[in-house]
Amino acid sequence: MSQFLQQIVNGLSLGSIYALIALGYTMVYGIIRLINFAHGDIYMVGAFVGYFAFRAGLPLPLVFFLAMAVPALFGLTIEFFAYRPLRKRNAPRIAALITAIGMSLFLENLGILIFSPDPRPFPRVFTNEPIYFAGGVTISIPQILTLAFTSVLMISLTLFIRFTRTGKAMRAVSQDAEAAQLMGVNIDRIISVTFVIGSALAGAAGVMVGILIPRIEPLMGIMPGLKAFVAAVIGGIGVIPGAMLGGMLMGMAETLVTAFISSTWRDAIAFGLLIVILLIKPSGIFGSSSRTKV
């Protein structure tokens, strides 16, 4: 039982990272119906910025600021140079999807070129000394930090989307882009804002994963990226609380499988979950189903 609880704690901290990445996926998908495959690599960029910032001895808040600002800039640039021209040309959606895959390959290989493909150890900023909880369950400082910072980010995001003008515009665009435009919403600006926020969250996730699992490499974004997308689908794509829940579920499912079955099956559980959810309720847990009209 205590081992089970322990795995829940571990799962929550891993899950919060998935949730942060999933938020970016779900926000972008909600607004422009694009699986932004490059999002996982934005997370890698965040991890590397964090790595260099820590190595330079910068204070923690500044590290997080940089690790969110630089990926945000990446997201903005990618949207501007790769996705926007496609949108302006009314290119088929398959072209957009392939562009996203191409962008992802580009970032991965740029990472390999600049940072070399070898994994490097993330600087240990916090001791991994476990703190004892009730019932033999332990939690470490990086885990507490991850959970706390993720909660702060999620609450701020929810408040932002709910109460600011920009947040309202984002919701409007995701509901009906054309109508929003008629109401005077600058769609391009909203899309840029969405990419900036999503990428910043992924960047934060990158630093946190560095602190939690201190090993980073240029291809580290592929698997978490795919799994976070799966998490977004499980929660209901386009729905923000869905991404949070989906991420947490994904993290927990993974740690439980690793602990009680085998770590080599870990990657299968994510996609197994995806297929089950797609077959039972393709719109996800919180999603509302839509019918194709002729």
């Binding site: 998908y29 999807l97 997308f229 990657d267 299968a268 996609f271 197994g272 297929i275």
Partner: peptide
């Protein structure tokens, strides 16, 4: 089962199955 899905969902489901096959081969 998966061909009931369309567009992006189908893409991600086939990707998922591809990965599952790989993990099965791994195990």
């Amino acid at each position: 089962p998966t061909l009931r899905l369309r567009g992006d969902y189908l893409a991600i489901a086939t990707l998922g199955f591809g990965e599952i096959i790989r993990v099965v081969a791994l195990n």
